[in-house]
Design a protein around this nucleic acid. Structure first.
Lengths: 221, 221
DNA sequence: ACAGTAATGTACGAACTAGTACGTTAGTCA
DNA sequence: TGACTAACGTACTAGTTCGTACATTACTGT
């Protein structure tokens, strides 16, 4: 069961660099996410592609660079989602909720991305560090958060003096954990954090929590 | 630089099954945490021990069982910490804060544990599932949370109708993420979530957030 | 049409790695 | 004290896995 199975070639092979590259990236994403960096097999990736291992080295150079390319594309996806985030017309509370929902939805919809990031963390983010595309890019979500926070604090709705990066970390942590630790959490506590029946529950819960924090009475210090 | 370097044996070898086993577990913990399950090398573990690879197979059976044993011991540590948690004499708010702090401190102090859990998640928690010691044990923290929540709700301090497992997930997620995603978060946003100078900041922040959520005004539904 | 090149396939090797067969030694208990 | 066994060491192998040398074919521009 290959991920891509369009028109089969009747006789000779077809040349399409873009498609071949994309197909390799698709399969590699699955394989790395499935087994981790060292657990992933280059031969297995090649086998599940319509091309051969030779092409992986031809286009990407090696396993390491292939993983980097996979990461770059995965990060590209979430950055696009965040860039399309339009919350200018919403009041600060609704805007934060929207941001939470978008992050929540993206993480849930892209478990492979979560796994890739987990894997990259185990390896000390060395591929991100080596990538020109990924180093210190930050995230469009950060700008959005900054604007929402400024507006919320200005209007007096938000009592907390929160930093945008910190808030991003708080929101991400729950969305990420829910997917990344689904297996162990389920095995230990018998609860599936990604159970569709609980989806709305957790989505609301995180929004409530963030809003509660941002609007809470603060002890004067 | 071996992890254990007590008295060197002048001449012949010494027999100490307990010490040998413990030493293998120590080194294996480091090696698995360093490189992931497939990235870890049995030969490397053996080399950094005062014993040989043969002993790993003699005591544990294989790489897979060794990893399971490493996991079992790591989970045992946090369970002990949680078991010593004494919050009966505190009011609900202080008790929750204490629980948050203990979780926060443990995760920060045991990055290897976090990495092992991340690795186990990449492999679908199959070792936990196969372990007699680890399946469905839950966590002593859960009982503590249940008692605190009950007391807080009874006294009217806590407005939210929160489930203990969910609260545990919320608290764990931030504590876990801070350590597990330190590398990628640092590489992407230029901020070290485990920076000692920021430690108190994040520790307080999480407590504030949880308390804000538990004590917030809730819209009637 | 044809030359040049990008794209592709095949077959293979060198290095690594989990695991084991076999032999040895240090405690310990009768 | 001597025999028995748990604990330990050495040397090796079978299988795997990343990577490449070499050969080939489909496009593209002129």
């Amino acid at each position: 069961m290959t991920s891509v199975d369009e028109t089969a070639r009747p006789g000779g092979r077809i040349r399409d660099a873009a498609r071949t590259k994309a197909e390799i990236l698709d399969v590699a994403t699955q394989e790395f996410a499935r087994a981790g960096y060292d657990g992933a097999r280059v031969d297995e990736i090649a086998a599940r592609t319509r091309t051969t291992k030779r092409m992986i080295y031809y286009y990407f150079g090696g396993k390491e660079q292939l993983f980097t390319a996979v990461l770059e594309r995965a990060y590209g996806v979430i950055r696009e989602v965040e860039q399309e985030l339009d919350v200018e017309h919403l009041d600060p509370v609704a805007a934060i909720r929207r941001l939470v929902e978008v992050t929540f939805d993206h993480h849930e919809a892209h478990p492979d991305f979560i796994r890739l990031v987990s894997i990259e963390n185990i390896h000390g983010a060395e591929h991100i560090a080596a990538s020109e595309k990924l180093g210190r890019i930050g995230s469009p979500a950060l700008d959005v958060i900054r604007r929402i926070l400024a507006s919320g604090q200005e209007s007096g709705l938000f009592t907390a003096d929160v930093d945008a990066v910190d808030l991003h970390a708080m929101i991400s942590s729950f969305c990420f954990f829910r997917v990344s630790n689904r297996a162990t959490f389920g095995a230990l506590f018998g609860r599936d954090l990604v159970d569709p029946a609980q989806r709305e529950h957790y989505r609301t819960m995180l929004g409530d929590m963030v809003i509660a924090y941002l609007t809470a009475e603060r002890a004067t210090d």
